[in-house]
Design a protein around this nucleic acid. Sequence first.
DNA 1: CGAATTTTTGATGTCTGTCAACTCCAGTGG
DNA 2: CCACTGGAGTTGACAGACATCAAAAATTCG
Lengths: 210, 210
Amino acid sequence: MNAIRTEIKLDAQRTVFFQEDPADYLYNVTDGNVRVSKMLADGRRQVTGFLFPGDFLGLSLNGRYAYTAEAIRAVTLCRFPREKLESLFADITVLSQRMLTIASNELVSAQDQMLLLGRKSAMEKVASFLLSLSERAIARNEPADPIYLPMARTDIADYLGLTVETVSRTLSHLVKSGVLTLSTATEIVVLDRAHLLDIADGNLSDTNYL
Amino acid sequence: MNAIRTEIKLDAQRTVFFQEDPADYLYNVTDGNVRVSKMLADGRRQVTGFLFPGDFLGLSLNGRYAYTAEAIRAVTLCRFPREKLESLFADITVLSQRMLTIASNELVSAQDQMLLLGRKSAMEKVASFLLSLSERAIARNEPADPIYLPMARTDIADYLGLTVETVSRTLSHLVKSGVLTLSTATEIVVLDRAHLLDIADGNLSDTNYL
DNA sequence: CGAATTTTTGATGTCTGTCAACTCCAGTGG
DNA sequence: CCACTGGAGTTGACAGACATCAAAAATTCG
C-alpha cells in the first residue's frame, strides 16, 4: 500500500474535500484533527464526526463524497487513490465486496439521519421520512405513490426524535395544507410531491407549521 | 451460502435479538418489516432503522449485537451463522477484512450518535461527548484525564445538535457543580468521572440543569 | 358489539434557541 | 510594552418549538 500513498499536509481551516466532489481518494489521518460535516441549503450544519490520528475518511456514495471534510487544525493525511486501491481488492470475493457496499451505504444513510435528528424541524423530519420511505419502495420495485407505513406512530416518533403527538399533529397539518391524504392511518397518498421535497430539504421559509 | 441458511418466521412484535446478546447470526429480511432500536436505562428509545425485504441486520461490536431488532409485523428472515459465514470470507485479504471492521465500528458509533441526537438532553449530550473524547484518547494510548478539545464550540454545537450558547452554558454548569474544571477553553479536567458517566447515560433524575 | 389500543386533538409548560451584550484572549502595530 | 482590534467564548433576557398532560375519536380485535 505504501507504493500508492501520498502524504498531504493542510493548514487549519483548509478543506480536504467537499460533499459531492468526485470521491477519487481515500484518506487516513496521520496527525492533527479533521471535522466531517453535512449542510442544509440554508446553512444549518450537522457535524457527523471528529477525526483523530488513525481514523479514515473518504466514504462515498456512487462515486461522490457523502460529506465535507475540513482540517480543524494543521493536519497530515495519507492519501490513497481509490482506483489503485480497488486493484488491491481485486482478489476478494463478490460476497465480501457486497458486504462492504452494504456497510458503506448504511453509513451514508446513518449520516443523513444524523443531519435529520440534529438539525431539522419536526415538519422537515416528517417530510424527509415520508420521502425516504417512498424512495426505498421504488428501490424495491414497488410503487412510490401510496406510501405504506407498516410501523406505529410511536415508532416513527422514536425514529425521528419526536413524540407521538408531534408526529400526528405534523401529519394532520400536511393533510390540512393539501400536501397529503391519509387514506387509512397506515397509507398515505402524496398530492404535492414538489412541496414535500421543498419542506424536507429545508427550502421553505414558513417553517412554523403547527 | 444456501447450505448454511435457515429460514426463520416471527410473528408481529416478536424480538429477533436483543442488544448485547451474543451476535451469533447475521440476518436478511425476506418478508415483512423489522424495527431496529437502542434504549436508554430510563426507557427513552431511539429507533435507528426500519428494515424492508432485502435489508440486512446483525451488526455487532466485539461479538455482541449493537441494537435490538423486533418484528413490526409478521416477518420472514434468512439466518446465517456468523461462524460459518466467516469461513466463506477465509480467502479474503487482511486488508478488506480490516475495511469491514472499520465500517462496522463506524456504524455502531453512528447509531450511538443517533441515540444522542434524538433522545438525550443538552446536559446528557455534552457529558456523553466529553466521555467519548476521553475514551478515544485512551484508544490512541493518550492520557484520558485532561480532555483536549481541538474543535471550536461551534463545532461541538453542530456535532451535538445544539447551539454554541447552550454548549457553553452546559459546560459552565458542569464547572459550577464541581464535575469539571476548564484549565483553558480547550482543556478540561474531569473531577467527578462517576457523576459524568451517570449524566451521560441518563441515570440522573435532576435533568434540568441550566 | 364492547374493551383495549392507537391515533388525534387540545391546553399548558419548559428546554433550548434567539437576540444581544459583555468578557477573554491572541495577534498586530505604534 | 501596551493599547487596539477582531474573533471566540460566556452570560443574560426573552421567545418559541416541541414536550407533557389530558381527553376525545378512531381503529383493532376478541
